[in-house]
């Protein structure tokens, strides 16, 4: 008796799946209809001017009521993104100056935006990096300013650390 009842769910599952497939095929056949999609398109296009009017009215009201609209929020978000991109570019620029930072960063997950360093093995990046290195060493030899360069590097490293601290607030993953 129990066994029979237990099979009920199994049979229900098989029956349900079968009916589901049949109904789905039928529905898809019915709605795969050119007139239907065209009428949906037409009705959505008819609503467009009304929605634009409402959005414009909301923008006008926001001037009087002094509340921000979605457009204002989107503009701020875009400014933040611009700032993020500037930091990215700065990091990339710095990474070409101090490629040997790679090992140091890898060992510190908290400074895990390790992208500041070009890969030592990367084909296309390699050539750029090597030329930077060569150029750097030539300059150093000719000028004899190794101490000064070290100081500069230290300052740049501090700057990167500050940038990363700014950028990664609240981004750490708890699983680690």
């Amino acid at each position: 008796m129990t066994e029979k009842k237990s099979d009920l769910y199994k049979e229900l599952k098989v029956f349900g799946k079968q009916k589901e497939q049949q109904l789905n095929s039928k529905i898809q056949e019915l709605i795969n209809n050119r007139e239907l999609i065209e009428s949906v398109s037409r009705s959505s296009q008819m609503q467009v001017p009304e929605i634009i009017k409402m959005q414009e009215a909301s923008e006008r009201r926001s001037i009087i009521m002094n509340y921000p609209t979605k457009k204002d929020v989107a503009n701020i978000a875009k400014l933040v993104l611009q700032l993020e991109e500037k930091i990215d570019k700065l990091e990339e620029l710095l990474s070409t100056v101090i490629p040997e930072r790679n090992g140091f960063l890898r060992s510190q997950p908290s400074l895990s935006d390790l992208g500041v360093v070009y890969s030592l093995g990367s084909k296309k990046m390699n050539s750029r990096e090597e030329s930077n290195k060569k150029e750097g060493s030539k300059k150093m030899n000719s000028r004899g300013e190794s101490n000064k360069k070290e100081e500069n590097k230290k300052r740049i490293l501090d700057l990167i650390n500050q940038l990363q601290d700014l950028k990664f607030v609240g981004q750490r993953n708890r699983n680690v």
């Binding site: 993104l81 993020e84 991109e85 990215d88 997950p109 895990s112 935006d113 390790l114 992208g115 950028k167 990664f168 981004q171 750490r172 993953n173 699983n175 680690v176």
Partner: peptide, 13 residues
């Protein structure tokens, strides 16, 4: 879900 240890290395938008 998503329990494999991970670290965020870069973020954009």
């Amino acid at each position: 879900m998503g329990l494999t240890p991970k670290i965020s290395v870069w973020k954009k938008n």
